[in-house]
Amino acid sequence: MSENTPTPLGLRERNKLDKFLRIRAASKKLFTENGFEPTTTRQIAQEADVGLSTLFLYATDKRDLLFLVFNDDLDELTTRAFADCAADRPLLENLHNALRHFFVFYGQDKVISRDLTREITFYTTGMQSERFQATRARTIDSLSTLVEQARVQGEVRCQEDNNMIAKTMFYLLAAEIRMWLADDSQDPQDGLNELMKRLSLIMHGLQAG
């Protein structure tokens, strides 16, 4: 067996993975079909064909199950979004290209996305929380990298910390996504356009020496 060949999972590990996948699939199915609020953990356990006590080995509560469903997607979203950026492009162009992915992602199902973004606000505890917080930190770090690249190019001349600027941009993104999700528009570009107007205002301050 070569060094790169993955070690086969043992029976116990395969059973754990099978239960995890069934719980995730059941959670996504019921949250999508019935909505987050009406769905109960008991219903999810029944759909996944596991006991309620087993369910809570994988998630702390119903909100935790929501992020068990979406953590992989959110992690992949951050990777995909910032892969489109380049150090020699203007900051606003990079932001437009990166943040467009977030509106497209949340626009795939605005109903479940409303639940997801609402629960994100105070999501600091739970088995799945640590991974979610890590993904959010990586998103802010990616924004901070764009700001630093723009500083090197001479676009950003203010003395404010890159991470503070990135957090401000991230909070604007989160707020604008929620506003767009509450609107009747089905076009992600509408939400992105509103966000870019606000980011353009921020650029005036960043260019001040």
Rank of each mutant, 00 (worst) to 15 (best):
D72S: 13
G35M: 06
E76F: 08
E33G: 04
G35L: 05
F103T: 01
A98R: 00
L181Y: 01
S53R: 14
L66S: 01
A81E: 02
I140E: 07
R131P: 00
V156M: 04
F122E: 12
P90Q: 13
A59I: 00
H101W: 02
D49L: 08
D184Q: 11
L146T: 02
K167C: 08
R157D: 03
L17G: 07
A83I: 07
T7V: 12
T54D: 10
E194Q: 15
M169P: 00
F132A: 03
N193I: 02
T41W: 05
F56A: 04
P8C: 10
H96A: 11
Q46W: 06
R24Y: 04
Q43E: 15
F105W: 09
G107M: 00
Q207W: 03
A48I: 01
R151S: 02
F36Y: 15
I177H: 00
L21M: 13
V111E: 15
N71E: 08
L66C: 04
R80I: 04
D84Q: 14
R14V: 05
Q128S: 15
A83L: 12
T124W: 09
A25Y: 03
L99A: 02
D72M: 06
L55E: 01
D84G: 11
G205S: 11
A98T: 05
D115N: 08
T124C: 12
G51L: 03
R100F: 10
A87W: 10
G154Y: 08
S144F: 03
L65V: 01
T7M: 15
P38S: 06
L92C: 04
L95Q: 01
A83D: 13
L116H: 01
A150E: 00
K16T: 11
L172G: 07
K197Y: 08
L9P: 07
I23E: 02
Y58D: 02
Q43V: 08
R89D: 06
K16L: 10
E93S: 13
S142P: 06
D109S: 09
P38D: 05
R89S: 04
H101R: 14
T60S: 15
R22F: 02
T125S: 14
G205K: 13
N15L: 12
E155M: 07
T41S: 12
Y171H: 14
L52D: 05
M196S: 04
E3D: 11
E119N: 14
E176F: 00
I23H: 01
A26V: 03
K197Q: 10
R63N: 09
E194N: 14
D161E: 15
G126K: 05
R12Y: 14
R138K: 15
G107Y: 00
Q207V: 05
N97F: 06
L9V: 06
F122G: 14
S53H: 14
E176H: 04
I112C: 03
Q46M: 11
L201W: 10
D18R: 14
C158D: 06
K29V: 05
H204N: 12
A59G: 07
